[in-house]
């Protein structure tokens, strides 16, 4: 990979990591209302796929969506303000963590319903095909969503109509608190692609370069009108399903011991960092400077969010009927 592309990929991952670390801290301090689901540990998937997309390509995300917004080039300040429920947020404080969207860069929204975003991505693909563009649509979802009807309907529909869609399953191995291996009788969700007559590819979702390679082929296939691909990225949640979940669990443990160890071993940021350092493609100082800049940007985003005003009653009734 060319150094500039490699740096771009690394930047996307680092932006997500530093943002999410800060969000975790803020949540633990009781500064954020509602639920927060962090993307730490899964950054290589969103970054690896989105590094291949144009601004006019579409993505649809999940409840664990901060990483996708950032990977697509979203603005940290407007995101952080949304998490604080402020009027300067992406959704004027009406969406929150699970509903951030940025239509200006093709980010068609995160989604609080597991599997709910998948058909919407199919529709974006249908739209691109109907309008005769070479845009592609990417649906990110988890292993839990792969058991929803919407997943199956969407794969079949996109396949039957040969739509330019990437179905990217982030198999972090837990649907909320239930291990995926208890929720389905197969190990590989990619197998399901066969039932819909589309390619199903398994990739190490903690390896950004591997994700990039696999997604490159799927994007090319979609752009040339050859139809959808299911990519199963095997990955790990660094943290829990939701921040502060200990409060719901009553001291019970649900993580499988060997999986937790694997999650610690397979950190996507460290992996890419190690690769870059060993390859010597990017000077270490560049990476360090980048980290300082991103950390500062996150700090600025928090300051922006804190300084922003809460939405008022006029905003409550805005954005209803056109």
């Amino acid at each position: 990979m060319e150094p500039n592309k490699l740096l771009d990929l690394y930047t996307r991952i680092l932006r997500i990591r530093r943002f999410e670390e800060q969000v975790g801290t803020l949540f633990a301090q009781g500064q954020l209302p509602g639920f927060v689901h962090l993307y730490i540990g899964e950054e290589a998937v969103g970054a690896g796929v989105c590094a291949l997309l144009r601004d006019d390509d579409y993505i649809v995300s999940t409840h664990r969506g901060h990483g996708h917004v950032l990977a697509k080039g979203g603005d940290m300040q407007r995101m952080m303000a949304e998490l604080f429920g402020k009027r300067t947020g992406y959704c004027k404080g009406k969406g929150g963590s699970m509903h951030i969207a940025d239509f200006s860069i093709g980010m068609l929204g995160a989604c609080g319903i597991v599997g709910g975003g998948i058909p919407v991505a199919v529709g974006a693909g249908l739209s691109a095909k109907t309008r005769g563009t070479d845009q592609v649509a990417v649906s990110f979802f988890g292993d839990g969503a792969a058991n929803e009807g919407s997943f199956h309907e969407s794969l079949n529909l996109a396949s039957a109509l040969a739509l330019p869609v990437l179905f990217v399953c982030e198999n972090n191995q837990y649907g909320e608190f239930t291990p995926a291996i208890h929720a389905m009788n197969i190990r590989d969700i990619a197998l399901r692609a066969q039932g819909y007559g589309i390619p199903g590819v398994i990739v190490d979702g903690t390896d950004a370069l591997a994700v990039y390679d696999v997604a490159q082929e799927a994007v090319a296939r979609a752009r040339r009108g050859a139809g959808p691909t299911l990519i199963e990225a095997k990955t790990h949640r660094r943290g829990g399903h939701a921040e502060g979940e200990e409060a719901f669990l009553g001291g019970q443990q649900y993580r499988l011991a060997d999986e937790l160890a694997a999650a610690r071993r397979n950190d996507p940021l460290l992996k890419l960092h190690t690769f870059i350092v060993e390859s010597g493609l990017i000077p270490l100082e560049t990476l360090e400077t980048l980290d300082h800049e991103i950390t500062q940007a996150v700090t600025d985003a928090v300051a922006f969010a804190r300084a922003s005003e809460a939405p008022d009653e006029a905003i409550l009734y805005e954005d209803t009927w056109v």
Partner: peptide
Amino acid sequence: DSRIVDTPISELGVAGAGIGAAATGLRP
């Protein structure tokens, strides 16, 4: 074919696809 699109019997998927298409420039 491109304007009159036959689909599988797949109400959830088709409704969602319509929504995605409407959000990206069509009037389904």
